[in-house]
Design a protein around this nucleic acid. Structure first.
Lengths: 160, 160
DNA sequence: AATCATTAGTTGAACCTTCAACTGACATCA
DNA sequence: TGATGTCAGTTGAAGGTTCAACTAATGATT
């Protein structure tokens, strides 16, 4: 390694801000969901993905790639969601290795009750603070950053 | 709660990108540090804060607020860093309740060896993908978002 | 000086994620 | 059809964070 190219003042400022947002924003979003619905952000998105899927079901592998989770993590979480009555499992007729996670009616009701508060929190924390031009500037820059972090756009294709 | 104001298409796009970056960027930064130095990002920043402090020491409370950590988390981590020989503790003469965490020579050497690779990773993941204008757009928008998440700017005042 | 509230820090249990090892099903290819 | 490799998912242990309860020291109030 040659002598490192340290960050310029402007870069350092941007980096500290980016770092602060990546720490504080997920905590704020998670906190609202926990307080108002007893769900972690991850659990909420698992249920939300299922609520939007056809027949309210997805294989664990599909869910894992949509939520950027390991299969192991998802397996543990789906078991807990199952114990709570929000998700059940079903065999996949096309492939004996796959297992569907299926959203129950109770799970659907939970997502639907949690969604408005979640969206409000996203608005409050992000979009209420930004002008249209600022939002566009943010969006463009994030897209650039994602070009190396998620080149296949796995995490930005799906609905909320 | 009245009928929720759902996100517009542009807002949804920006939100998915912001969410993706908050998930993937810390994982990428953390991964590089773990691979090359055996440190988590949190441990690295604890040591980095100490390396920059006068007499290489800070009270745990001060460290906690600079790293956005709970005192409990920090207490556990400082114990582990102490077992590894990178940090020691010292009593605070001004206030018998406070305890200094002090960076050892070995800890200083570790931070100095880890810093270049870390900065390179930040460059590669963030600034190499952005034009100056894009970086500015990002920085401005993040600053707006932080106005409600961290109004006192606790996390953006300190050095890297 | 005695009391009460607050601040600094520690500790152990509970919880979640990661990791590695494992089972079972499908695919490939001889 | 048998052997081998890969894919889907599970499991239990290990490691880190959170939470609540705790100790000890300081500050404030009388």
């Amino acid at each position: 390694m040659t002598t490192p190219r340290w960050l310029s003042d402007d870069e350092l400022t941007a980096w500290l801000r980016l770092r602060a947002v990546t720490m504080l924003l997920p905590a704020a979003i998670d906190g609202q969901l926990k307080r108002d619905s007893g769900l972690t952000e991850f659990e909420y998105y698992v249920l939300a993905m299922l609520s939007d899927a056809s027949d309210r079901r997805l294989t664990l592998s599909d869910l894992a790639s949509r939520t950027n989770s390991s299969l192991s993590r998802l397996s543990h979480v789906v078991r807990r969601l199952g114990e709570a009555g929000w998700v059940t499992k079903a065999t996949c007729p096309d492939d004996g290795r796959s297992t569907f996670a299926v959203l129950t009616d109770a799970g659907m009701a939970l997502v639907e009750s949690a969604a408005p508060g979640h969206v409000e929190e996203v608005r409050r924390r992000v979009f209420d603070t930004l002008s249209d031009a600022e939002r566009e500037g943010l969006s463009v820059a994030l897209e650039r950053i994602l070009s190396t972090l998620d080149p296949a756009h796995h995490l930005t294709r799906d609905i909320d």
